[in-house]
Design a protein around this nucleic acid. Structure first.
Length: 194
DNA sequence: CGCCTCACGCCGATTACTTCA
DNA sequence: AATGAAGTAATCGGCGTGAGG
């Protein structure tokens, strides 16, 4: 057993062995996954902070002094993941393993891809919702401005012809916009926010 | 039963890295 | 060639849930 103290905060491959930073994958299938992951990576632990690949023909994904090199998914991998995401936005562990095998990725990478993909979807949806709300706000602001103008016009009309307005106001019992009784003036309150 | 612990999956926030203008 | 912005793979810590003791 590797001393977890030696492994803390190094990188994902190695820290997955550490019980300080990883709290998943402890059942049989998950352990199998981990073994698979490590075999795929062929990582050799040299010191707590130094990690090097042991296959010389592959200079991809080399970890040195705790830095992580990011893998870029190929177009094909992205396409397959994307298609899979269209079918179901979450994966059970079998689907995850199958997909990982098919794409020559680690199950954890597939899992992370789906998590990030869900996050992106949610972010996009939030942006759309935001835009709708913004539009809604602009419309309401415009309506408020229009109604306010109407009030000013009615007020000035009342000043110039108070008697005639009293008569016509008596015939108006409902505000057509907000459908609240406007008779007498005290119930009709318009708030101007800008 | 209720409780505790553990493993697990998910999420939001963030980091680290790549790519592109 | 240098650089900042955008995109994204990966990490971290927290939370909810279900199973088992």
């Amino acid at each position: 057993m590797i001393n977890p103290q030696l492994l803390g905060g190094v990188n994902s491959s190695v820290s997955s062995l550490s019980n300080t930073s990883v709290k998943r994958e402890r059942d049989a299938s998950s352990l199998e996954e981990e073994v698979e992951n490590l075999e795929t990576k062929k990582v050799v632990l040299i010191s707590p902070k130094v990690l090097v690949h042991n296959d010389d023909d592959d200079d991809e994904d080399v970890h040195v002094y705790g830095t992580r090199k990011k893998l870029r998914l190929t177009k094909e991998q992205s396409d397959v993941l994307e298609d899979s995401f269209k079918e179901h936005t979450t994966l059970n562990s079998k689907q995850k393993r199958d997909l990982a095998r098919r794409l020559s990725l680690r199950p954890r990478q597939v899992e992370v891809w789906f998590q990030n993909r869900r996050a992106r979807t949610k972010l996009k949806q939030t942006e759309v919702d935001c835009e709708i709300l913004r539009k809604c706000y602009e419309d309401l602001k415009e309506e408020n401005r229009r109604l306010n103008k109407e009030i000013q016009e009615l007020k000035s009309l009342k000043m110039s012809a108070p008697f005639r307005l009293q008569l016509s106001a008596a015939t108006l019992s409902m505000c057509p916009s907000c459908e609240r009784s406007t008779y007498g003036g005290s119930t009709n309150r318009i708030f101007i926010t800008n």
